[in-house]
């Protein structure tokens, strides 16, 4: 696996593609809510062991894309594949390789931290012994070992997010989708979570699609997909995107490309 890891400024999507199927491929996906076109022929791919940022303002179509990729919405046209498995035709194979952290919280507040993990494990058909073992490991990784018996309601926002990430990784997926996972968190919790996910990419070789509208979460060496009003405006390295726009940083490149006012972007 040479090249496309978040830390490496060299290499790229092309290098990783040669070694096997792409982690996520979105092919000509369009989606309508009634008359409104939410996604318009969206195509891009995420390579294994890559950190790809999906950058877009609120309403750009990020959450719709996530709902399609997890079969919460039916795909109207186009195709989405996870390691070559079509999410519509073979959802079982695709979902086994996929972990998701949705933007809204999806934990069971009344249940304990461990119970939430065990529930997820059961949904993946995991045996109880294996589930307990993996839960303990997962909690250790996100520093929540002490909180295993506590009700989720008592966790902080950052802890809940860490727990959701731990849960999404419990079945050992090869691709992790995160939909604005740091929204509403304080600076430290944001940095913790972003650092944790970047380590998953670098150390475990997990492909990550990180949807965000927060520019400071994106590094120059990250792959970038710019989604604006349901259309993909650009794909490729962030640094190239900035250079191509003739801008000095991502913010001005994004503003120049989309015509979005600076005020609508977070720092």
């Amino acid at each position: 696996m040479n090249g496309c890891v978040a830390q490496s400024p060299t290499g790229g999507i092309e290098g990783a593609e040669a070694t096997g199927p792409v982690a996520l491929s979105v092919e000509g996906v369009s989606h309508r809510y009634g008359d409104r076109l939410a996604l318009d022929r969206v195509s891009f791919s995420v390579s294994p062991a890559c950190f790809a940022a999906l950058l877009g303002l609120n309403g750009a179509g990020k959450s719709t894309l996530f709902s399609l990729a997890t079969r919460l919405l039916r795909i109207q046209s186009g195709a989405i594949r996870v390691f070559g498995h079509d999410i519509q035709a073979h959802p079982g194979e695709a979902l086994r390789l996929l972990g998701v952290v949705f933007q809204p919280r999806t934990l069971d507040l009344e249940l304990s931290v461990t119970q939430n993990l065990l529930y997820h494990a059961a949904l993946h058909g995991m045996g109880r012994r294996e589930a307990l073992k993996r839960s303990a490991e997962a909690l250790a990784r996100v520093g929540l070992t002490e909180r295993g018996r506590d009700k989720v309601r008592g966790l902080s926002g950052g802890q809940m997010r860490r727990l959701e990430i731990a849960r999404a990784l419990l079945h050992r997926p090869r691709l992790l989708l995160l939909d604005e996972p740091t929204v509403g968190l304080d600076v430290k919790a944001r940095a913790d979570i972003l650092g944790h996910v970047r380590r998953l990419v670098a150390e475990d070789g997990i492909g990550v699609l990180w949807a965000t509208h927060l520019l400071d979460e994106i590094r120059p060496e990250d792959d970038l997909v710019v989604l604006h009003q349901g259309q993909v405006l650009s794909t490729g390295k962030t640094s190239r995107f900035v250079a191509a726009a003739g801008a000095e940083d991502l913010r001005s490149a994004f503003t120049r490309l989309t015509g979005a006012g600076v005020g609508s972007l977070a720092p």
């Binding site: 079969r71 919460l72 979902l95 998701v100 999806t106 069971d108």
Partner: peptide, 15 residues
């Protein structure tokens, strides 16, 4: 239960 339905439906088992 929308959140919980998301958790449920990303299970790979048949819907």
């Amino acid at each position: 239960e929308m959140g919980n339905m998301r958790t449920l439906l990303v299970s790979p088992l048949p819907r």
